[in-house]
């Protein structure tokens, strides 16, 4: 158990980040990471701990593949080729993608809000930001757009 706990502390960060990249959602990543470590715990007598985290990452990958196979419905979207981002973001246009003053967090909140039509709470859940962080990121982004483009968006 001590060896397992030490391995958990040592490898959780990497395993979790990989799970996140495979599932795109914090709660699913946590589920997948916990399954990987539980699998390690159950097989701890047969697993060469010097092979970690490779063993864990393989389990994560397999579980993530299973997850997407089972949740195929969530991978659907209305497929229309988008040649011009201006068509998606009529008011914002390309500037939102190119303005150097916008950091990833601002752009992400803007895109999730105005392309994916999420509300603040959904954005917070999706990004792991707090509701206040989402609010201020959107405010900053919108102020910037108003100043540079003169566009007014519904917050």
């Amino acid at each position: 158990m001590e060896e397992f706990e030490a391995a958990y502390k040592k490898h959780f960060g990497e395993v979790f980040r990989y799970a996140l990249r495979c599932t795109g959602r914090r709660e699913i990543a946590e589920e997948v990471a916990s399954e990987a470590f539980l699998s390690l715990y159950r097989n701890r007598d047969h697993v060469d701990f010097s092979q970690l985290p490779g063993w864990l990452l393989t389990v994560v990958r397999n579980r993530a593949t299973d997850y997407w196979r089972k949740h195929r419905a969530e991978t659907q979207w209305d497929e229309q080729p988008i040649a011009d981002p201006g068509a998606v973001l009529p008011e914002i246009g390309k500037s939102v993608l190119e303005d150097a003053r916008l950091k990833p967090v601002h752009r992400t909140c803007l895109i999730l809000r105005y392309v994916h039509e999420m509300d603040r709470e959904q954005i917070a859940r999706r990004t792991g930001l707090s509701a206040n962080q989402v609010k201020s990121a959107l405010q900053y982004g919108l102020t910037l757009l108003r100043q540079s483009l003169g566009v007014e968006l519904k917050p």
Binding site: G24, A64, Y67, E74, Q76, W77, I82, V115
Partner: peptide, 20 residues
């Protein structure tokens, strides 16, 4: 439904775990 893939699907794409 939007005209772009959901963000989590987008994020998982480079990992190669989505159904083919």
């Amino acid at each position: 439904m939007t005209r772009c893939p959901p963000p989590d699907v987008l994020m998982a794409q480079p990992a190669g775990v989505l159904p083919p």
